[in-house]
Amino acid sequence: MVRPPLTPDERARGHRLGAHLRAARGERSLPEVAAASGIGVETLRKIESGRVPTPAFFTVAALARALDLDLDQLAAALDPAPVGALSA
């Protein structure tokens, strides 16, 4: 089965996810967070750099748990503002 290419919006969302996770990791090392979430260091590195723009749900959930992030807030942070939304 051939996977369709990602759209520019999907790639941008992957970069936003990576940036958000990097910021949440703060001073913690890649190996520390990878071990706490049960994923490989290289996998975390690829997610943070945007090279894996669509990680599996359970990977994101494990990272959110390890970084003490709320999944609803994380999802909201990754989606651009809806068309027509007013800024505060």
Rank of each mutant, 00 (worst) to 15 (best):
V2W: 03
R3C: 03
P5D: 14
P5V: 11
L6H: 13
E10M: 12
E10S: 13
A12C: 03
R13S: 11
G14I: 12
R16V: 10
R16D: 08
L17K: 08
G18C: 09
H20P: 00
H20W: 02
L21H: 04
R22Q: 11
A23V: 00
G26F: 01
R28A: 10
S29A: 04
S29M: 00
S29T: 15
P31N: 11
S37M: 02
G38C: 04
I39K: 07
T43H: 13
T43Y: 05
L44G: 03
L44H: 10
K46L: 15
K46R: 15
I47C: 10
I47L: 06
E48I: 03
G50L: 04
V52P: 00
V52S: 15
P53K: 07
P53F: 11
T54E: 14
T54Q: 15
P55D: 07
P55V: 08
F58V: 06
F58A: 09
A62D: 11
A64K: 04
A66D: 03
L67E: 02
D68V: 08
D68A: 13
L69E: 09
D70N: 11
L71D: 00
Q73F: 03
Q73N: 05
L74M: 09
A75C: 07
D79K: 12
A81G: 07
P82Q: 12
A85W: 10
A88I: 04
